[in-house]
């Protein structure tokens, strides 16, 4: 059972990103993966970054703790509690990672070292970042495994990753990620490789961490039903930019950007509510995602957009307040001709 939640408001955002852009040099030229993203995250907030493959959601997330591969060029600003992270020396950034910002990845099978026990890998983080003794680390490890819902944690810490199921491994990864009580947890498709019954339990762990430890979470996902289940607020990305941002209930009730609406209507669930077995046509989004090699000064979605007008190619829309008298505050959209908010 989950109740409706609203984002708790602290004094200013915990994490503040402005004008984030990431380029990669490749053999074929420069790939503009992220082209200017503004994002803020409040304490204890669960923010979803969603969109389809290649929209730049993972690159945005990876650039926060400075985990981009060599060859990536990052510009813009990433501030954690007012401290600029993009210019931090590597050493200082290492301390931020793990202690203040930590990450959970999609693949729980390859993120753990197969030759060390769960207890060793969890304890290593505690000894290194928290300066705990072996005994302290062991006791804390048991607590952490218990926190993420692993039964018989005192027995589990002696096991190796291959002895655990996928869901259990992902719980261990989350335990490692929250070992030092980070302020921000970034989870990149954390349940995509898991079965739904396991996914439900892992999402409960995230909710629980937020409620009990006040951890703010950035959840990167392509799955709109996961967004609907857990996020307070969501940002929809397309071709390296945020195209819409709103509290989750508002976003699903009144999508404003034609792309967001397109995604929601393309889901099989959009038509099966009326009846099973009818097989009405699903709404398609014609065309393809534009190449990340160029960045013309126009709306990137315009070639595929059912609402496109001549002015959509004249300049690029920026993310701004959807409607001035909008009842739900904080709904922003980057579109010259947004939907009126008539619902799905």
């Amino acid at each position: 059972m989950t109740g409706a939640r609203t984002a708790p408001n602290g004094d200013g955002p915990l994490l503040d990103i402005t004008g984030l852009a990431v380029d990669f040099d490749t053999e074929d030229g420069v790939v503009h993966a992220v082209k200017g993203v503004d994002l803020s995250l409040g304490a204890g907030e669960i923010l979803a970054l969603c969109g389809e493959s290649g929209c730049g959601k993972s690159v945005t997330a990876m650039s926060i703790p400075g985990l981009l591969p060599r060859g990536a060029r990052i510009s813009g600003s990433v501030k954690l509690e007012g401290r600029e992270l993009t210019t931090l020396p590597a050493r200082a950034l290492r301390d931020v990672r793990g202690k203040e910002i930590s990450m959970v990845f999609q693949e729980p099978m390859t993120s753990l070292n197969p030759s060390f026990t769960v207890g060793y890998q969890l304890g290593e983080v505690l000894r290194r970042h928290e300066g705990m003794s072996r005994g302290q680390a062991r006791a804390r490890s048991v607590e952490l495994l218990d926190l993420v819902g692993i039964p018989a944690p005192d027995r589990r810490i002696k096991e190796y990753p291959h002895q655990l199921s996928g869901g259990m491994r992902q719980r261990v990864m989350i335990a490692i990620a929250v070992a030092c009580s980070p302020k921000v947890l970034i989870a990149d498709e954390p349940t995509t490789a898991l079965d739904v019954t396991i996914q439900a339990g892992v999402l409960d762990v995230f909710r629980d961490l937020r409620d009990r430890l006040g951890t703010a979470i950035i959840l990167i996902t392509h799955d709109l039903s996961v967004v609907a289940d857990i996020a307070d607020r969501a940002i929809v990305m397309y071709a390296g930019r945020a195209v819409e941002q709103a509290p989750v209930t508002e976003l699903f009730a009144r999508p404003r950007h034609p792309y967001t609406m397109g995604l929601m209507k393309a889901l099989p669930a959009a038509v099966t509510a009326a009846g099973v077995g009818e097989r009405p046509r699903l709404a398609e989004i014609p065309g393809m995602v534009p190449t990340p090699m160029t960045d013309p000064d126009e709306c990137a979605f315009q070639p595929r957009c059912p609402r496109a007008e001549p002015d959509c190619t004249a300049s690029r829309p920026i993310l701004e307040k959807a409607v001035s008298e909008s009842p739900a505050d904080g709904h922003t959209v980057a579109c010259f001709h947004p939907l009126e908010g008539e619902g799905r």
């Binding site: 989950t2 409706a4 996914q199 039903s225």
Partner: peptide
Amino acid sequence: AAPVPDPVEQR
């Protein structure tokens, strides 16, 4: 366990 893409219904 399978979530539905509607926050009001899902919650």
